[in-house]
């Protein structure tokens, strides 16, 4: 059974007292996430992807449809606490999710809430900080850290809860390239070495390379889904909903439009260069193309 199952999920934000209108953000979303999987959710701003994220850890309760996490129904309030423990959330703004004014105290926040015994909290905090490479900064004040470092502290804070899955809601949107690289590296490491199930919500194509499955959202629905190469090769369709294909695929697509025979599914720069060089080799010495 999948770890997370979402069936026909709908969510409408209620009308605001001060005149804000009710707004339907999700219009029937179905997806599933297996234990240990790395799933990416893409979409332009306002496509509903952040609302979906908030439904996955019972921050929002579905208006209609069903979300189940580890066999627990997310609509049942009795499960809320356990679901939040199972599914950690890392948000976009690193500043606004750090509670304490010392790094290690912040990482301890979730296990403290869970009532974990103090020696075990210490152990978890140290382990989490080592995993994200922030152990040396454990006694620092968060406001003096860079954006990328703050985000790593936020990830440690979720890890210390010992979740089985972490949902990342545009974790790199406010970071510089170095911070982004660090955070994406940690996300991959969490999946590969710690076996944490990952749901990454982003609009940066290149961050999703190497994931198992991609869901592309538009207008509160899932528009395209599949493996990265199945999804990213649909260049026209992605463009029509405001998403750029990766630079590599765009290039190959441009070449194919001009009648050059190259495959579309070379996603990484290395694969792309290999594919183009191959086409060049065939053209320069057609006889060699047999091998």
């Amino acid at each position: 059974m999948p770890f997370i199952t979402v069936e026909n999920l709908e969510y409408a934000y209620p009308a605001h007292e001060d005149g804000g209108e009710a707004f339907t953000a999700l219009r029937g979303v179905s997806l599933s996430v297996e234990e240990g999987e790395f799933v990416a959710v893409l979409g332009h701003n306002g496509s509903g992807k952040s609302t979906l994220a908030r439904c996955l850890n019972a921050t929002l309760t579905p208006t209609a449809g069903r979300v189940s996490v580890g066999g627990l129904d997310a609509s049942d309030e009795a499960n809320t606490f356990e679901i939040r423990r199972l599914v950690g959330m890392v948000f976009q703004n690193p500043d606004n999710q750090i509670v304490a004014s010392v790094v290690e105290e912040d990482v301890a926040f979730a296990p403290e809430n869970l009532g974990v015994p103090p020696p075990e909290i210490r152990r978890r905090v140290d382990a989490a900080l080592r995993t994200v490479g922030m152990y040396e900064y454990r006694e620092h004040a968060p406001h003096l850290l860079s954006g990328g470092q703050k985000q790593r502290v936020a990830i440690a804070g979720v890890l210390a809860m010992a979740p089985r899955c972490i949902v990342f809601d545009e974790p790199t949107a406010m970071l510089d390239p170095r911070g982004r690289e660090d955070v994406i590296g940690i996300i991959r490491k969490l999946r590969d070495e710690n076996g944490v199930t990952i749901v990454l919500i982003t609009h940066h194509m290149d961050e999703t390379l190497g994931c198992d499955r991609v869901y592309v959202m538009n207008g509160g629905k899932i528009e395209v889904s599949g493996t990265p190469s199945e999804v990213f090769t649909q260049v026209e369709r992605l463009r029509s909903i405001g998403i750029d294909a990766p630079e590599t695929v765009s290039l190959l697509y441009g070449l194919r439009l001009a009648g050059v025979d190259v495959p579309l599914s070379a996603l990484t720069p290395d694969e792309c260069a290999a594919a183009v060089a191959d086409a060049y080799g065939k053209r320069v010495s057609p006889a060699d193309s047999a091998d």
Binding site: E247, L251, G254, L255, L257, A258, G259, V260, A279, Y280
Partner: peptide, 16 residues
């Protein structure tokens, strides 16, 4: 991207 694509189209014998 545009410059790279154009150069490659030339090299690989494609045409728009």
């Amino acid at each position: 991207s545009a410059a790279l694509r154009d150069a490659l189209v030339g090299l690989l014998g494609g045409s728009y």
